[in-house]
Design a protein around this nucleic acid. Structure first.
Lengths: 206, 206
DNA sequence: CCGCCGATCAACCTTTCGGACGATGCGCCG
DNA sequence: CGGCGCATCGTCCGAAAGGTTGATCGGCGG
């Protein structure tokens, strides 16, 4: 039997996760908390769990999901499965770097969730298909390979400047800016300045 | 007995709403759908409900929650209770203008949800406390002169979509998007989509 | 009832971008 | 030394975006 703990500040979502987990014959919810602090307190108090389902976005809570994940993994070595609504690349990366065993989006079908819980309990990594796709996309375009000049241009693009304005601002010709932008779009896998700016924001590279 | 229909593209949230509703002695879930189209189809097919719990954000679905709300209210006169995760002012306004009977955030406690369902079934308006506070805040500062539609377009622009993509997403022609964008640029004092997106971010209108 | 506004679309034209070449110079590293 | 990546510029062309004007339609308020 897999003992699962839920940590989510949305009562409705907690009820949903509980329903999904309890409907599985081989797992059960043993505890629920609505804040990361409560979760930590429960664990420190001797609470035992096989898997923790954690929401990355704790409303306006003091402790973020990523921080909580790091603390839990370090202190209790319990597998943390991050289940959140929106998956910006930065969030996902942060969670994984913090030591999360898996990352699922809330729009994942229930059987996928159950599978992820079993994988996590077994100590395996469990990433949702969406998440895997995102990570792959990130690999294909390793973002950080933007040169300093390209990043400089990208920042100005994101600020809404035109090529001409950027050229004047950087004391180069428009052709150069276009060239940089072409490289940026190639590296980020985008097709327009606006998409590049949006992607850059998502990845927290500004 | 209050018959409730759920419309949400997140399986977990659907399970959560179902758990909450079914735990109340005076209400029950009679149908679930994951898209607005399915919901409309079910209603058109003779489905009867006392209250509809609808998610405003239907992933990448073709029909937005606000549009769906309008159609349902006009065609079937069934009270629609919008239950969504994040409450942007524009979202709330759009939903209410479309004729939603109530608006709740998903982080609302379960008893508040149950109360809202009863109010909606009785034909009363049911706005969560958070929502009411937001509306008041909005009254004080009339935000921007941007219409809800323009704001919708602006958001997609900021997400990096092309005019063509936005047009397909909103089911209108490219000419309309260009028209909206022209108005947006006039109102914001910008000269390009990227600048408009940047300005919008600065002013926190997304 | 009439006027105004928001949403929708169209046609036309100008400007800006983006893609696909190629070219030069510079610094770094094996 | 000889690549290699980076930054710089150029041209050509097609695609996308922006500006202008004008039109229809529905709702809402005076």
């Amino acid at each position: 039997m897999i003992d699962v703990v839920l940590a989510d500040d949305h009562p409705v979502v907690r009820a949903g996760l509980r329903a999904v987990v309890d409907s599985q014959p081989d797992m059960q919810v043993v505890h629920e908390t609505s804040t990361a602090e409560d979760l930590l307190a429960w664990l420190d108090d001797g609470g035992q769990a096989d898997v923790i389902l954690l929401d990355l976005r704790f409303g306006d809570a003091r402790m973020g999901g990523a921080t909580a994940t790091g603390t839990i993994v370090r202190r209790h070595r319990t597998p943390v499965l991050v289940v959140t609504t929106y998956g910006t690349d930065a969030d996902i990366l942060a969670a994984i770097e913090a030591g999360a065993t898996g990352y699922l989006l809330k729009d994942a079908p229930t059987d996928e969730l159950a599978r992820a819980v079993r994988s996590a309990a077994a100590g395996e990594v469990a990433l949702g298909p969406d998440v895997q796709r995102r990570l792959l996309g990130r690999m294909r375009s390793p973002s950080e390979n933007l040169s300093t000049r390209e990043l400089e241009v990208l920042r100005l693009v994101a600020a809404g400047r035109s090529n001409d304005a950027i050229a004047r601002e950087l004391f180069v010709s428009v052709a150069t800016i276009k060239s940089h932008l072409a490289h940026i779009n190639t590296k980020l896998g985008t097709r327009s300045r606006t998409a590049a700016a949006a992607t850059a924001r998502d990845r927290g590279m500004l």
